[in-house]
């Protein structure tokens, strides 16, 4: 696989090392002469010095035969144009842009460019690292529009001993099923929650925090 990466030294170097170790052929385009020299010295990749959003430079770097192009410069405007040139001009089958402003993720998508915000991914990972070991984020659907979470009830939880109806789950949230001593239960409003119940909870971003609070806060 032929991969083309456009970006600054720090972000390119480790990624490039990883791709090379997998046996991919990598071409890097970088604007900075000094960084190019360091990359050429440290990596067995083709290093091209120049503006990666310049169609001529892309062509010289072999964009016509690339299988994938990755735009990870610190400038969103450059990443957008690089990817657009990649697919519209050079017909590269896979293009991916890293966006610096998380809002640009949806802007890029509307303009037809696949984009990822590392800031958003990082913040999601941090938010998922809650203090409770008894909460596991199973998966999310539609870029986090719906979250499915597993919550294990502990003795101290306020919800223990109450029925589903009594704990007052907010609108748009749902306890989809309960695993009690390894037996699955589909709960109704009158189902009583017990210690060590494993709940599979479906939430929306706006009620996620509230649901976790209801299920995990200690009894007063």
């Amino acid at each position: 696989m032929n991969i083309m990466i456009i970006g600054a030294y720090q972000s390119v170097y480790y990624l490039c090392r990883l791709f090379l170790s997998k046996g991919y052929k990598v071409t890097v385009i970088n604007r900075n002469q000094e960084e190019c020299e360091r990359l050429a010295h440290n990596l067995k990749a083709t290093i091209v010095h120049g503006d990666g959003s310049d169609p001529q430079i892309l062509e010289e770097a072999g964009a016509n035969s690339a299988d994938a192009i990755l735009a990870i410069t610190p400038n969103d405007q450059d990443n957008l144009l690089i990817c657009q040139l990649g697919f519209s001009h050079f017909h590269i089958p896979r293009t991916l842009a890293v966006v610096n402003d998380p809002d640009n993720e949806h802007v890029f998508r509307k303009l037809g460019v696949a984009a990822v915000s590392l800031t958003r991914v990082l913040s999601m990972l941090i938010e998922q690292q809650t203090d409770f070991d008894d909460i596991t984020n199973l998966f999310s659907i539609g870029e986090g529009k719906i979250n499915v979470t597993e919550v294990v009830l502990s003795t101290s939880s306020r919800a223990v001993g109450k029925t589903v109806q009594q704990i007052g789950m907010p609108n748009g949230s749902l306890i989809a099923s309960i695993l009690r001593q390894n037996k699955p239960i589909v709960p109704s409003g009158s189902t009583q929650l017990l210690d060590k119940d494993r709940l599979i909870v479906v939430t929306l971003p706006e009620n996620h925090g509230e649901v976790l609070k209801i299920l995990t806060s200690d009894q007063i």
């Binding site: 959003s53 400038n75 969103d76 405007q77 450059d78 957008l80 144009l81 802007v107 303009l111």
Partner: peptide, 9 residues
């Protein structure tokens, strides 16, 4: 490139 991005948006 900023101009292109702004114009497209």
């Amino acid at each position: 490139n900023v101009n292109l991005m702004v114009a497209q948006v």
